[in-house]
Every structure is written in structure tokens, then in C-alpha cells.
Write a protein that binds this DNA or RNA. Sequence first.
RNA 1: GGCCUGGUAGUUCAGUUGGUUAGAACGCUAGCCUGUCACGCUAGAGGUCGAGAGUUCGAGUCUCUUCCAGGUCGCCA
Length: 601
Amino acid sequence: MNTQAKSWKRIGMCQDFSEADIGRKVTLTGWVDNRRNLGGLLFVWLRDRSGIIQLVFDETLDADDFARAQDIRNEFVIAVQGTVVARAEKNINPDLCTGKIEVRVDGLKIISQAATPPFAIAADSKVREDLRLKYRYLDLRRADLQKNLILRSKIAHCMRRYMEENGFVEIETPMLTKSTPEGARDYLVPSRLHKGTFYALPQSPQIFKQLLMVAGMDRYYQLARCFRDEDLRADRQPEFTQLDMELSFVDAEDIMQINEGLLKQLMKEIMGIEIRLPLRRISYKEAMERFGSDKPDTRFGLELKDVSSLVAACGFKVFANAVKNGGSVRGINAKAAGLSRKEIDSLTELVKTYGAHGLAWINYRAEGPVSPIAKFLSQQEMQALLEAMHAEPGDQIFLVADEDKTVFPALGALRLELARRLSLIDESVFDLLWVVEFPMFEFSEEQNRYVAMHHPFTCPMDEDVAFLQGDLGKVRAKAYDIVMNGNEVGGGSIRIHDADLQEKIFKALGFSKEEAWEKFGFMMGAFQYGTPPHGGLAYGFDRLVMLLSGCKNIRDVIAFPKAQNAACLMSDAPSPVEDSQLKELGILIAATEEKKDDQLK
RNA sequence: GGCCUGGUAGUUCAGUUGGUUAGAACGCUAGCCUGUCACGCUAGAGGUCGAGAGUUCGAGUCUCUUCCAGGUCGCCA
């Protein structure tokens, strides 16, 4: 071999080379992406994180090397030495960044052979999700996933830079923390030194960041790992990352302003989009009434209309009763939708999953309205209804009648589904807005009491404090969510820094002073020693990256995500542990069905 | 916990009313090939139809149970 004495250290990555390097002697390393063997001539695409460059092996190569080149297979890791040469005009590949050049190989080293991968390593390959997750390290070789992780890193860097420039200090908070009631299920970690007790992994750094304000750190931020033991969704993983921040001596206005600055910088640097400030703000009430959602997608219309008063006295019992019982009848006008009966049936199934009992519809044809509820309505009632819905011939009206807490989500979901089916969403638009004036409390049927909608340290709006002794449902919070394209990407609030007010809130939530001290004592204790007014916000970092990368699933922006059942298909976590480990922790596992079966054998 | 969709070759999928030996493309193996870039040509290997039970003369196809994956409602302060 004529090149043995030379170094095999690469002098650059695959995509670093261009026509400017023609004639240059190079050493390259990477994975074999693809090969085309023409007998006396062999083409290999060499791939690394940067991209692809074509290698040519031909008769000018040492005979030994050429023979070994025949053994090269996809995904082998190789090193080559050679010369960058120009491609003839007719051989230029316009789809490749390096398509005008190639490397004429004069030395080959097979660094690592590869078994045939279980699926093709290609950007567009459709592969079963469980296979992708089991062989995640191969899946991550795909250019599109690598692109996502690189974008994720860029976004994190952009955020950190903005925070540092604005006087924030990055501080790490503990992962082994105290389990607190309220909120999501905790992931628990048993303690060896204190048998029978458990740490909890943080659902968020909430309490610690507030204590940092008590400590006088003034402005804190962290790219914080968080854990919630709840069921997964396409945009929800059990462990995830937040950009978390907390600021002292601020009001909601200050926090929104500083975050608008962050969003502006982010959109400009990452997406090349100039957003106009200040961002739109709408109240929770308005969001629900107009869009049926507290995270409205306002890139399209199809707004909800309240027609309760028009049908309160009509002959259709479902409508009349809904209004009589304090609920409402609301509708959406699907302009010129032209949906078939079958499609309407599938929409009915959709609203039923949100608890609606049915979906009333009206096809407003040129010759008049056609509807299964037409026979229950007088001509005047129908006319008033159509007018209220701004109906024109060709439109389809959909109506849901129930309690508001059912009507809103049902119509909110229907609105999104209609937009998808009618292709009303412009995917190139980024729609950012604040939703403000959230309710402080929501009634939990399960616990038969009011619970904090955000968390119990959220400050109520000044003008609503009086309602704390009365109608808790009326109390609004100094809380705000940032919504992007119908997704909640961040949320926060002004916190309570006044012990008396905090006590009132706990009382409203049904905690005695003793209970509150037992659960949150270290925090309430801290607040006795001089607490600045403070508030903060946290972004769902993974979700934000997902939206900015255009991905539909949060797994595609996380290096090693969990499957839908929260398991890691690659490492097989969670898994049983050795009995000795359990013994050391003082833990006994209650017999499961499986174990009982084993014992019977 | 509920609902919906899917599971057939290594991968992506087709498989009609239950009926002969379950197919295609890509990938893989071998051979040929000096300008390929979705290389081409020839030949070949590769299947517990997710698993179990049932109906039937006969099940990839029908029924039940179950496992796995995805989506979703509940849940996610």
C-alpha cells in the first residue's frame, strides 16, 4: 500500500469541500451512504453529519485497496486518502452540495464494518416507529433527525445568549426534590439512607426558582429537565426540557415584554422571520368564546357564535334544555364546506369524544335550509339562526348544545378538524399571541372542590381578590400563556409574595394552615424573611423546537425519546432490578399477576 | 382506564366472497459491468401472516382473548 505511512486523520468533514479544493490532497472519514459498483469503477457516497461527498475508486488505485473496496457495504466506517477533482460537466449532480467535485481515492482503510441495518438510513424512509426507537442510534444517522438536533442546539444557544444579555443568571436546581401534592404525578426515587422515603424528580423547578428570588438572585433562568408521570401524546414526553425563568420586582407587563424580545430574536435568528411587537393579547374568556380553546389557532376563521338566546324557547328539547340548565348552544359556520353526510357523521364522532352528545347541522342550500332539526324550529327561529351565523347558501352550520365546559372543547376540536379538512391553515405563517386573565381556579369533579388551574402560588388579579371569599370561579389570575399556531409553548404568572394572600388562597383550596405548612412549609417559611414581588415564565422547549422545525411529533426533536407507553425501546427501561437492590432500599414489590403465575409453576 | 387505527419477507406494502404452492418494490447474497448518482443486467436466498384459542372440509381473510406500536379522551397544578 502506497499510503501506509500517511496519517488517516481527516482534514475536514464531507461537505467542507468545494471547487476551491480541486487538486488538493485530502483524507476523509465517514459512513458509506451508498455505493454503485460498475465493475472496474466504483462510486461511494461518503456521509457524515455535514453531508455527502462522492468517492471514486478506479484502476489507478493500488490493486490491494481496489480489491478491498469491493467489500465495502453500506454503513461501513471508512477512511480514504485521495485528490479532490472536478467532475465533467455531464457528471455534475445538482442535488448534492458537493455535486461539482468528487474525490479520486488512492488509499482506503476500512475502519469498521457494519451489519446490514434493519432499515434504510434515508431521510424519507417510512419505518415503523418501534423499530426506529429500538435502533435510535441508526435512526439518528438520518439527515433530517440530525438537522432537528442541530436546530435544537441553535435555539438553545440563541435563548441562552438572550438571557445572559438581559441580566439573567443560569442556576441549576436539584433533580432530587420533595414530592408535592397537586399537579402531575411525580416520578419517585427511593432513598437508601432513609428507608421508606422517596425523593421526587421535579415536575418543574417552580418552588426552587421562587426561592432564588427570595435569595435575591433577581433574574434566574435555566434549561431545566422536568419529569411528569402522565400519559404521553404526540407533543408530550414524560421527561422534557423547559426554558425556565423567574424575575424579581416585575409585573406581568415586564415579563411579557422581555419574552417578546426573546421571541423576536428567536424568530429572526432561527426562522428569518420579523415579528411585530407587541404581540396580540386576548383574554381566556374571549379565546374560549371565539375559538373554543385556551390555545387558539388564529391563522384561520371558523369562529364560534353563541346562539343560545335564539333557540332558548325553540321546540328542540336538546337546545332548550341546554340553555335552561345554564349551558349554551354555539355553532360554527363552515363556509362552502360541501361535506358529505358521511363526513358529517365522522365529525359527530369527533365531538362525541369530547363529551358532546351530538352534533346538529344545517345545510343551507339555495332552496332553503336542510337539517334534521329543521322540524323542531319555527321558520323565524331558523331564519334568526342562519342570520346569526352569517349563513349564505352553500354554507354548512354545525351546532353543539351542552354545558360550556363541553361545548367549548367540542367546537374547538371541530373547528381545528374543519380547518384541516378544508385546508384553511397557511403552514408558512407563524401565529403568536398571549392568552391572559386565566381563571385562578377550576372545579374538580373528581375531588369535588376547586383546584388551582396554574399552581397555588399564582397571584390573583387585584380586582378579583374580593371574590376569594365568594365565587371562586370568578377569580382571575395574573397568568399568561404564549400560544404559537394553536400550541401552548409557554406559560407563567406573577406569584404571591404576601403571606396573608397566600393563606387566603390555601384556604380557598381547602387546605388548613397546618396542611399548607406541612406541604409547602419550607417555601412559606422562606417567604417570612423578605420576599420581593416576582413572577416568571417557562417554555416547553421541546414543543417549541418541534414547531420551529415543522415536525408533527415531539420525538423527532429529542435524541432518545420514550415510546407511547413511556418505555425506552432501546434500553428497555423501565426494568426490574436485583432483589439485593430492593433489599438495600427496603422495598418489597407487591405480587403482580405475572409473579403469581411464576409462583404457581 | 375508555375509544380509534395498524401489525403479512430485513423494510415499505398488496393480498378480492374463506379455497391450489402467500406476492411486489426496495434491501440482502452471488455473478457480469469504466461515469454511476433511485446505476443497469442475470440468478438466488428470505415468511410461525404479532401470539393463543375458536368456527369451518378449509382461515392471512370470520369470531373471541391477548401482546406490541401509533393517535386520542380522561390525565398533564
